[in-house]
Design a protein around this nucleic acid. Structure first.
Lengths: 243, 243
DNA sequence: CGCCCCGTTGAGGAACGTCAATAAGAGTGG
DNA sequence: CCACTCTTATTGACGTTCCTCAACGGGGCG
């Protein structure tokens, strides 16, 4: 089975690309490597070297706090590029790690420059970076203003949209290959409480979640609970739903 | 009294600038306007037109949530530039408003392009944007992993660093022209609870706060409480402390 | 088979929210 | 300058959300 170029698929949500653009992207994703779950890509304080592109699996940005806990500040899902700031920042102010097993491409400096030299690709990459920032702002809202169930519901809605944009959703269902401990580190609550929140979402017939398979049973109700508004993802074109 | 060019002062924290760079910045800040407190600069959903530069006062990014509350996601203090993404995003995914009376410069498209055409200014602006993003990540940590007193303490430490970088701090003291309701909307707690947190910080002899004048009485202790680590601000050079 | 990580549940306590009342300032018009 | 009003700050009482500690079960993997 041929692996579709998820980078192209993602960027096509923002801009049109010509054949040469697509060919460059195909060349870039040609040599991926596979990493196990729970593996650091780069640590806070280290000097960034290359740019990472996720093709498969979930990764995250995180920081450790003095009391031993960790806060996840971003999910990196297939099609996501991280650390375009390689060229500017001397030291990482956060760490990067896989959550599940991941397929990753290390993009070299000259390949990034080749992309930025193409106006439409440059625009798509910048737009994608602005969306990441908008997502961060929405996470601040999520942590600051919503409580348990709404918080998790919002995260599930966001992942639905983001994964749908790269064709990884069918019938409001997707793989969510993370533990409840990771989920707790994401929504800023204890693992015990997240477990109870999930129990409650299941009891309300909003979702099922077994063996890392999430099924959203009642999307309108989940979106309503979450106060969902996808404008911060700035998706201009919706990709066709998969069968 | 001549108003110092706070934009230059801020950018000099990141890069060296030559005389022509500084002259361009002086031209840009030449025609400011003054806005009253609690005034929107732009609303979520609107199309951004120009870029805003704050010269005096506090402004913020915020979103309203269905239940009527508002979450502040960023503070804009003197020297801060917002919305460089004017050129890319069709609609704002959040709103911008003044918290106190503000002096603001509206920067036109061609002036932005003139700055970006100068390599060092471009680098400084991009670095500044990355710092904004790093700040957003730290706020996620603040909301997700810290409780009341640590949260407020962290915010106060951050503002100390940021205001010091533009010369608005003397002896660990600065103007904090915001209400407790705004503070609550920032740290994701109720105004009543923020009031009690402040009371506790005062009782611990860490700060005083009267008439919008904040005095940090014991900075090491406040930083320890906050788990303060300024690396995300990426300040390379410290500006001299003001008398 | 045994171990370890993960998910689940119970019990009790700490942190935080809501409602409500009062005080203290700040601005406004007379 | 004073009376009035509106916003902001402060405090108490009480309820809710969430955390911590602890125990137990289940499934994957050596």
């Amino acid at each position: 089975m041929i692996m579709e170029n998820l980078l192209s698929r993602k960027l096509l949500n923002f801009v049109k690309l010509d054949a040469a653009d697509l060919e460059l992207l195909d060349r870039i994703v040609a040599n991926p490597r596979t990493l196990p779950a729970r593996m650091d890509l780069i640590l806070e304080g280290e000097a960034p070297t290359d740019v990472h592109l996720i093709l498969k699996g979930f990764a995250c940005r995180y920081k450790l706090v003095p009391d031993g806990g960790r806060q996840i500040m971003a999910y990196l899902v297939p099609g996501d590029i991280c650390d375009l700031h390689v060229f500017l920042l001397e030291h990482m102010d956060h760490s990067l790690a896989t959550l599940s097993e991941c397929t990753v491409v290390d993009i070299q400096r000259d390949e990034i420059l080749a992309m930025l030299a193409r106006p439409r690709l440059a625009q798509a990459l910048l737009l994608s970076a602005m969306v990441d920032e908008g997502t961060l702002r929405e996470w601040v809202v999520n942590l600051g203003r919503r409580q348990g169930e709404e918080r998790v519901a919002h995260l599930l809605c966001e992942l639905l949209s983001r994964l749908r944009a790269v064709g990884l959703v069918s019938s409001d269902s997707y793989r969510l290959p993370i533990t409840q401990l990771d989920l707790a580190g994401t929504v800023g609550q204890s693992a015990v409480h997240v477990n109870r929140v999930l129990k409650s979402l299941r009891a309300s017939k909003l979702i099922t979640l077994e063996h890392s398979n999430l099924v959203i049973l009642d999307l309108p109700a989940l979106e309503k609970l979450a106060g969902w508004n996808p404008n911060y993802l700035h998706l201009r074109r919706m990709t066709a739903a998969q069968v």
